[in-house]
Design a protein around this nucleic acid. Structure first.
Lengths: 406, 406
DNA sequence: CCTTCTTAGTTTCAAAGTCAGACGATGTAC
DNA sequence: GTACATCGTCTGACTTTGAAACTAAGAAGG
């Protein structure tokens, strides 16, 4: 490709050096700190090449050296550890819940350097929500004095299914004002930054993979028990999206063949049984007055018998729904997040029992079930992590080699 | 380097040239026939490099040229199409069913050049079964005059779960003599060839991906309704294995909470309802005499009311079990194979109905459900395809670069 | 304190690979 | 036959690479 005046826009010597840089950056992203020798092993490059690549990266300010950590009893010259320079790139995370928009700015290694949450009725005011987030983004840039060019992109996590190719939302019946919208395009045109949109459960599982409980496992299911119930699934280290990006719609798995009619038109969906809203509604019915999800949390803490029982039943239902997922995906870890996760063992215990009852030993023997360690920040941080995940690509150079695997 | 006589047995400078070769071979494996220009686009290499790599590959007999296919109305010099040389490598496929072992020898492009099936009571005689397969392999080599060194490996598909890391079988309660065995090791030591073992449903989905109905879709579920019920799952083009390699165990998904006790110890597993054995047993009970699976097929064809009803109910149950899989994985295509698939629409129709009833529109609108196009050969060919899948790696050179993705 | 040993990182240099662009080849269109 | 379009090869310049030599920095031992 040539520039406007036919000048050769260096542009394309291509993929060899870039590949080395990319691998180096990826290794550092994954591992945090590594010496050049470690890098040599992880990237497959020779010592000389690593040395040269690292020299460049340090020169460009993407990587920095640390004083040797002076670990245990070592022999020989101690290594110099390297890590990504936190300030070499920034990423925004936006979490669009039902009653709030949260925006964070994260540095290259995932540290949150700016954070703001705004309460707003998201479901009914898409435009306002986006405006709020966009202005948060502007404020963050100003407050932290970050140049727009230093931002790698915006990751948006949203509490409804996101269509894969189009980026369109599938928010029917739950977030009316968002139906058919493409928040990716809206954010992009209003911020002039790259934008990626994903479902919030997917964002959460990303966060758990990177910062939380799922760092060591490659097969994880994250279930988010919120107004909607969704799952973020990682198999073999890869996020599972499905043909339209709608994978993980656990909320509409049938758990009670003749149960309540769901907003989706079927009956007995998990969502009608185990979402915080459904549980609260159950109590409302028996008490004859409205019980909110917030109130529910208090009741549980107080040990209210009705609330306890309702949560237990919800856990049991989630367990039954997950049983088939476990048989199908053979995960190693299940994490539960969302408002209802605050109930802790009260919820997990019946879940585990139901899972054990409906799966076979080979699948449940090693299976761990726990609550999210990050909750609350999981979705935003995951959204930002989505952007950080391809930071190595963006930083390794302007020149895109084919994205094939080797 | 492409000098006519610039032969240089450089052996191991490592991973750069190899990478080009690898990508070229992969592209040819996937696409079948490509011109050099196509390769240039698919591999990201420059014309010159492609030319040089192809020159080498032709020289080594891995790739061959074809006369231009002389397609439509084209302008300019017609391309020379290239494809893999079928004889550049061979792969064995072994399908270990319940009552037979089938062994095929396939060439590099997947054509079957030798085929033998042996009837044997596999479940109770593991050793004999392996011996039979091993001797088939020897015979195949002799009959086709193929040198052992030309064989890339053996793919073994077997009708029970296979543990991922160990290669151990999980055949409890279904193939007694195989429990805890590692057929991979046994084949390897007796044939001195590389061996890979997978579950037969996984083998089938591989075959469908490569030769059958799933070539154009990246998100596919293959359900095999045989003595056991298993599913082979592909998501985003990748086989889904799960943490222990036990993904796809659809047979033990609960479909009738208070149903028959299953060999796995739970109740109402899909297998107790929808396996051919279970369906046949249902008829046996009402008729007061034993009905075999083979007989079942005849009865269905004759339109026997009882058999028809039993199959319909099985289909309905499969549909219900798959519903949750569909919500979880959002596949584009479901294929049904195994003995019961012969029932065709009789089985599929109630399956579709149950699926529609228990999933939401966004997930089932585009979903196709059909029977395997290959059945009978699917498992063996898939097993062989497993080996062919890494033919590019093996053929691209002795020098293994790190298996990272770019 | 000095030598020796071990591992880390850099430099050097020849070998090898890749790219861009020039060039030849081979067909269609008119 | 000429113009044109695309395909494929060749050449020279440039970049990257890896082996080995070399320097660095600490520990162990006398």
């Amino acid at each position: 490709m040539s520039g406007p005046d036919g000048r050769r826009e260096a542009e394309a010597p291509v993929n060899l050096r870039r590949l080395g840089r990319l691998r180096t950056l990826q290794a550092l992203t994954e591992a945090g700190e590594l010496s050049r020798t470690d890098l040599m092993h992880r990237t497959g490059l020779s010592r000389a090449t690593v040395s040269s690549v690292v020299y460049d990266l340090i020169g460009e300010g993407l990587v920095c050296e640390h004083a040797a950590p002076n670990g245990g009893v070592k022999l020989g010259r101690p290594p110099v550890t390297l890590s990504l320079e936190p300030g070499a790139g920034y990423a925004f995370g936006v979490d669009i819940g039902h009653d709030h928009v949260r925006t964070i700015l994260s540095d290259l290694v995932g540290a949150v350097i700016w954070d703001r949450s705004i309460d707003i009725d998201v479901d009914d005011s898409a435009a306002d929500t986006i405006t709020a987030a966009v202005s948060s983004i502007g404020d963050a840039l100003r407050d932290t004095d970050t140049p727009r060019s230093g931002v790698l992109g915006i990751g948006v996590g949203i509490a409804c299914p996101v269509e894969r190719r189009t980026g369109q939302l599938r928010a029917e019946g739950i977030m009316p004002s968002w139906v058919g919208r493409k928040p990716g395009d809206e954010f992009a045109s209003r911020t002039e930054l790259r934008v990626q949109v994903i479902n919030d459960a997917n964002a959460c599982v990303l966060a758990e993979r990177r910062y939380g409980a799922a760092q060591i496992w490659d097969d994880v299911v994250y279930v988010r028990l919120s107004a909607g119930i969704g799952a973020g699934i990682v198999c073999d280290g890869q996020m599972l999206l499905g043909h339209d990006g709608l994978a993980g719609e656990l909320g509409h798995v049938t758990v009670e063949p003749n149960g309540t009619v769901c907003r989706c038109g079927n009956r007995g969906c998990l969502e009608t049984v185990a979402s915080p809203t459904a549980v609260a509604a159950l109590l409302s019915r028996s008490w004859g007055r409205k019980v909110t999800s917030a109130e529910l949390a208090v009741l549980i803490k107080q040990g209210d018998r009705g609330a306890v029982r309702a949560v237990e039943d919800a856990g049991e239902a989630v367990g039954r729904a997950l049983a088939s997922t476990v048989m199908t995906l053979n995960p190693r870890l299940i994490l539960v997040g969302g408002e209802l996760a605050a109930a802790g063992e009260l919820l997990l215990d019946p879940m585990r029992r139901a899972l054990r009852r409906n799966t076979v030993g080979s699948h449940n023997r090693q299976l761990e079930i726990g609550t999210s360690a990050l909750d609350d920040t999981a979705a935003v941080r995951g959204a930002a992590a989505l952007v950080l995940a391809d930071a190595p690509q963006q930083l390794s150079g302007p020149n895109a080699s084919r994205g094939d695997s080797v």
